[in-house]
Amino acid sequence: MTAHADTATAKHPKSNPPRRAISRLGGGFSVRSLIHVCLLALGFVFSIPLLWVITTSFKGQGGIFTYPIEWIPDPVVWSNYPRLLNVLTFSGWPGIVFFFRNTFFISILATVGTLVSSILVAYSFARLQWPERNFLFSLSLATMMLPSVVILIPTFLLFRDLKWLNTFMPMIVPFWFAVQGFYIFLLRQFFLGLPAELEEAARIDGANSLRILWVIVVPLSRPAIVTVSIFSFLQHYNEFLSPLLYLNAVEKFPMALGMRMFQGTYTNDWPLMMAATATFILPTICLFLMAQRHFIQGIQLTGLAGR
């Protein structure tokens, strides 16, 4: 259809008519607008859950039962968000503040650990020559295939023996040991694509591998590092099963687990739940919008790498 519209415009280069009008004449109009209608409808359908969260979070308890659905609440109830702060408190502090602090603490430390360890290992697998390298790299690939459920029970018992129950250690420490082959693989692929000349020149000048990695490789690998950071951060931000298994003190809960505390004692307090949900989702949406380009690239990189 595009080609059709373009030739139509090309035929009248002098008269310079509005391009869109011509493309409509060229038959592009109907198909193109049909596609746009489809996309708009699908876009709306995909936005329903999020719109629903937002609209419900501004409703009163009675407002959610109305039929037909009120997309714009009447009246707009603002009190659900302040209520998040009052409904649950630990030693005078709002519970939700604890939940978010715990979530960010775990997510940031686990992500930093993932980055540091995976970069070192991936660089070793990509560029350094040593005898056992290929064997160990294939082991790290094998861990990607292994469903983590298989080691759920023994890992729990291991952390229990280490006296790590009811601490953040199980959610942080393993990630300082490059346990996710996926990130090693992603970074290694990226490192292999970098030109080797700079590194060779630095090596001839007597730089050691750590220095080469820090001064040359890391600055050149920003896209891959950003991708790993975002994936890893989101993974830990969303993690539900580990805190469920390892934590029992409510004030240690991350948001993913603590959300259920807003459910209400006797009846489901939906507006409050949705206010909590909106607050929980907001950082991920901000992160996505800020780093969208990297994100899409990263998915394509990893997706295509699987070929």
Partner: peptide, 28 residues
């Protein structure tokens, strides 16, 4: 020298694999 650097860089994975994959798998 590079062989040793390579092994040291890969140490996090070697230890992590032993502690958090191989040990739990065998235990399982």
């Amino acid at each position: 020298r590079q062989a040793w650097e390579g092994r040291i860089f890969a140490l996090p994975f070697i230890l992590g694999f032993l502690a958090f994959w191989l040990y739990p798998m065998s235990y399982s």
